[in-house]
Write a protein that binds this DNA or RNA. Structure first.
Lengths: 321, 321
DNA sequence: CACGGCTCTCGACAAAAGTCAAATTTGCTT
DNA sequence: AAGCAAATTTGACTTTTGTCGAGAGCCGTG
């Protein structure tokens, strides 16, 4: 494991094949190995990100709807996945697009904040590998020991792994039982540094959660369905990085939020590129709140959601004028 | 030609094939076209840069020699193409590597300065296409009406074309017959603006020329072999963007240089990333001069040249101590 | 030093992708 | 509206690539 001669070979094979355009059998004879090995090396090269195959996401921003959404909501860029259209599984489509967009937004040397949820994990799961050694992926919120496979730290680590980047985990629970404990924990140097480091990120990747019994916060036991319902009547409109926000995109003033260890919204807003990805049709209101709170500068959504957003924007404008 | 529905199809095919990983026949049935068409679309997608296939150039910087060169000469990054090794045509190898490195260094929104020469044109020629709409490629030096196919403006335009970028040409001759004329021409608003814009570049791509009868300056008739020889004895050590430099990398004080319309060395030095590519073994002294004059921060060379540079650095250090 | 477990490599076959000339459509001119 | 040229699409064919199980080399261990 120490020194891997194979790594070198993979690199050479990939170079001759992809950069020089030789055929596999030509590469094989150059390197004195069988063509079958070359084929295997090339697969590894693709899998590990030694070669990058990326397709432009232009098509999805070029859409007129995307332009109108950008204008209506003051977003930097919007990508719309055509939903009903040409695809077997429409829900993965958004994730595949999001992964491509994400890889397009990442630059060498970047620091990336990653939150948690089914959406984020799905993206991590289908994201192709890349060779970005000096990138750091940081976890935006505390952990939730859950029966789920997509825990916050797993999302972070998986993305870091795919990028060949450094992963920085958060060694604290997402929610504590008392406000005092949360406060003291936040004051701990290790935790404090991590929290402080979030504002230095260049790019954030997250989704927004709905305030209902299906929320991960409920499923993971952080809140009971009843508590969730109560928060909802207090004005809870969405969940961002484990925190409850109201319709204006601000942190809701409630005990739960005071017991959470997560990135402050101000830190998130300090991040230049905030990529929000929304898969579920049910997350219309949460998304509106997130946009209102300026928690999103880059948006990836499905065509259906895009239409609803535009309708809403139209209605608001008409009412205002 | 106005609106091209094909463009859309190419994009969709590329997306399904490369991002979703469908097979060509699956893509074909999704889009209701024949598989042969899909194959054609995919080729076009690769050719136009809608999909990007890039291989990491890590292998060539990871070299110990590259590290030592970086240290010895204070360069930001060095790539070394293994010369004798595994390849049919060793001289293209450097160009292929240089093209990859170049594409790796370019970022969206960049402004790129391109000089002229066989090396630069070779790179342009083998460089793969990319989709960098908001990039601008500017020509670093005046034109030379030559019997060559690699005129300065052609280098610029070809690279711009490959990048799908905007090309900014220099509508002035490289050398004029009198110093006065050169001076007045440099004062012309069009020219002045172009010259002034060079320092705003984020990346420059050039090589260095040798001071001998084989130089393009001689072949294109800008200088006679005799004049070149005379300049050599006056201390000429290399040619950068059409200008003669001395061993310390400064502009040589001579009539020729005063008659040239090209980027000032100070402007070049203001460019953050200066990528220099040297193919010929004979350009050892010119390269040393360019490095001495800080005209290069990123360097792509062959293994042989790398060895000579290291030997030289060793000798100098030993002498100094 | 022989033994399993391990990874790496190869040959042969199956699957997928590339290619080309003919057929068809498209857009433009007369 | 007919005719023509250019571009696009297709089916049939060839070449290239992916995959799988068998075998070879390697290493620590009993």
């Amino acid at each position: 494991m120490a020194i891997r001669p194979a790594e070198q070979l993979i690199h050479k094979a990939a170079w001759l094949y992809y950069a020089h355009g030789l055929r596999q059998d030509e590469v094989a004879s150059q390197l004195n190995i069988s063509r079958a090995s070359v084929a295997m090396y090339l697969r590894k090269a693709r899998e590990t990100g030694i070669v990058n195959i990326s397709t432009s996401t232009q098509l999805f921003t070029d859409d007129v709807m995307a332009r109108r959404l950008e204008d209506a909501f003051g977003l930097d860029a919007v990508w719309i996945a055509p939903e009903n259209a040409y695809l077997a599984d429409p829900s993965t489509d958004i994730a595949v697009l999001a992964a491509s967009v994400f890889l397009e937004l990442v630059k060498k040397g970047d620091r990336i904040g990653v939150a948690w949820g089914r959406t984020v994990y799905t993206i991590a799961d289908i994201m192709s590998f890349a060779d970005l050694q000096d990138v750091t992926v940081v976890q935006l919120c505390g952990n939730l020991g859950a029966p789920y496979s997509y825990r916050p730290d797993q999302c972070t680590m998986e993305i870091a792994r795919r990028l060949n980047a450094k992963g920085l985990n958060f060694y604290a629970p997402l929610v504590l039982s008392t406000e005092e404990l949360a406060k003291s924990l936040r004051a701990e140097p290790v935790i404090r540094d991590q929290l402080a480091g979030i504002a230095d990120c260049d790019l954030a990747l997250y989704s927004v959660g709905a305030v209902d019994a299906d929320s991960h916060l409920v499923k993971c036991g952080a809140l009971s369905p009843a508590e969730m319902e109560a928060l909802r009547s207090q004005g809870a409109a969405g969940v961002i990085a484990g925190q409850i926000i109201d319709a204006s995109g601000e942190v809701l003033d409630c005990s739960y939020n005071r017991r959470v260890i997560s990135a402050e919204l101000a830190s998130l807003r300090a991040i230049e590129k905030r990529l929000m990805v929304v898969q579920e049709h049910t997350k219309f209101e949460p998304l509106l709140s997130a946009i209102a709170g300026e928690l999103c500068t880059h948006l990836v959504i499905g065509a259906h959601m895009a239409e609803r957003l535009l309708e809403h924007a139209g209605a608001t404008t008409r009412k205002a004028s």
